[in-house]
Amino acid sequence: MKNMNLGQQLVEYFINNGMYVLQQFSRHFLISIYGVLLAAIVGVPIGIWISRSKKLSDVVIGIANVIQTIPSLAMLSIIMLGLGLGVNTVIVTVFLYSLLPIIKNTYTGMQNVNEDILDAGKGIGMTAFQRLRFIELPLSMSVIMAGIRNALVLAIGITAIGSFVGSGGLGDIIIRGTNATNGAAIILAGALPTAIMAIISDGVLGFLEKKLDPSRH
């Protein structure tokens, strides 16, 4: 193996282990997506809720901010003490870190909706739910999507660290590379797909965000 250069080693690695990398790639992506999805299910309603009350929003966003400041390895380890080793711990960690961008952006999106449009909605007899469903949510969708985008990029990074508590994913390949002889190729084989996943997710959701932007219609 030693007479091959890094590029050749990398090719050799993918020939040997292509399926395995693919499995870990999809596992990695699923873990990140589940965490973000849960955060969206919880965070969007919270964002809507606190947009009705300034006091509440300060408190909730303050708490989410503190969570965000906590180094993720510390958070992961502490949650591990409670929830044990394995994938659930990582999903909960991803969930917690995804909350802030999603709550904050939902809140901002709601705040940015023009009062006049809401009044018009009231004028034509829309209920509060209808106003939310047909005016506020569509108008703030792009901003909410931006929050989900930030959350997903963060999530992919956190999932990589999750390998330290045994959740699997591309972090496994990176860690093994740091342990193996001439592991540079293996490190790359884990790190490149992780980086590519993050960059592509960022790009795709960025595209969606633009599509949903009402000012572009």
Partner: peptide, 18 residues
């Protein structure tokens, strides 16, 4: 509540978590 049940209970499809 639903999210918590989802989290603690059935596990996540595709991850064979629990």
């Amino acid at each position: 509540a639903m999210a918590m049940i989802f989290l603690s209970g059935c596990g996540f499809p595709g991850l064979s978590s629990s």
